[in-house]
């Protein structure tokens, strides 16, 4: 029990630090695309500390208080349910067979909590953003779940550990080569999941100022930032496990997650934002038809 607790705390802290660092790297790279110097690599840590130590005297109700916790719990939950390094008994945390379905559920747990909290804050922009977010979520969740289903059907298991072990023994065994269309669809849904351009209709700066967190300040915001960083890392590890052969060692984990994290950076700085209906239409048709190809292949 104590061992599990220690591992949970260490894993979460590690993911937080890694997530914040990745965020810093992406800000620096975006700046250099713009031809700017950009912020420090540690800027996210400074921001987090500042927010954590600011006064928080505003609250709007119970759900408003709980939403950042939901976000944090959702992030940590996903992180603990995926095996971080295959075969490492400590870092396997709480993954057990049949875990893929639970992970799928947990992935949307934080978003739903956030939606309730934003609704409680009563800010009109927050409510607009929540309705957009839920709509978009229903659009990408379909193709992401279908992509996961392709893996489960193709490999005959719902356990992430088994999916990882099925990909061992050569790069051509990775699911990205076995199920290229499903992987492409999942990678497209990775963008709206991370709320990057062109799919960031939820936060949409300059449009509905900042969406759900409009009323959130100080400590609440710092918890949401941490939740987002941890969740980001958890998603990266999940994608690496599902499609890119999992990670057998620290170095391969870092390299794979880093490269996967860099991928939205090639898309987001050069694309403007979709309108809500454009985004939803794109997500309904493009990734869904991609995944349908692999689904048919697996079934027939």
């Amino acid at each position: 029990m104590t061992r599990l607790l220690v591992s949970v705390i260490l894993t979460s802290l590690g993911a937080l630090v890694y997530g914040l660092l990745l965020g810093g790297v992406s800000r620096v790279i975006t700046a250099s695309i713009h031809g700017r110097i950009g912020p420090r690599l540690t800027q996210n840590f400074i921001d987090l500390w500042k927010l954590f130590r600011k006064e928080s005297s505003i609250h709007h109700g119970t759900m408003f208080w709980m939403a950042p916790m939901f976000r944090l719990t959702g992030g940590i939950g996903v992180l603990l349910l995926v095996p971080i390094i295959a075969g490492n008994s400590v870092l396997t945390n709480m993954s057990f067979s049949g875990d893929l379905l639970l992970v799928l559920y947990f992935m949307f747990f934080g978003c739903l909590g956030m939606a309730l909290g934003a609704g409680d804050s009563g800010h009109p922009y927050a409510v607009v953003a929540v309705s957009r977010g839920l709509l978009q979520m229903s659009a990408y969740e379909l193709s992401f779940s279908a992509a996961v289903l392709v893996l489960a059907l193709g490999l005959g298991t719902f356990s992430i550990e088994n999916i990882v072990s099925a990909q061992q023994g050569g790069i051509l065994n990775w699911n990205v080569f076995r199920f290229p269309f499903a992987t492409a669809a999942a990678l497209i849904t990775f963008l709206p999941m991370n709320m990057t351009y062109p799919f960031n209709i939820v936060l949409a700066p300059q449009e509905i100022p900042i969406g759900p967190p409009t009323e959130y300040s100080s400590r609440f915001l710092s918890f949401m930032f941490s939740g987002r960083a941890i969740f980001g890392v958890a998603k990266l590890i999940l994608f690496v496990n599902l499609f890119f052969g999992g990670a057998g060692s620290w170095s391969s984990l870092l390299i794979k997650t880093f490269l996967l994290y860099m991928y939205p950076l090639f898309v987001s700085p050069v694309f403007p934002r979709f309108r809500t209906e454009q985004s939803v239409r794109f997500l309904w048709f493009v990734p869904t038809s991609l995944v349908a190809v692999d689904l048919l292949r697996v079934i027939l």
Partner: peptide, 14 residues
């Protein structure tokens, strides 16, 4: 201005 850690926020709360 981002090199000084200065950023714009759309809401006074933040």
């Amino acid at each position: 201005m981002e090199r000084f850690g200065i950023a714009m926020r759309p809401t006074p709360r933040q």
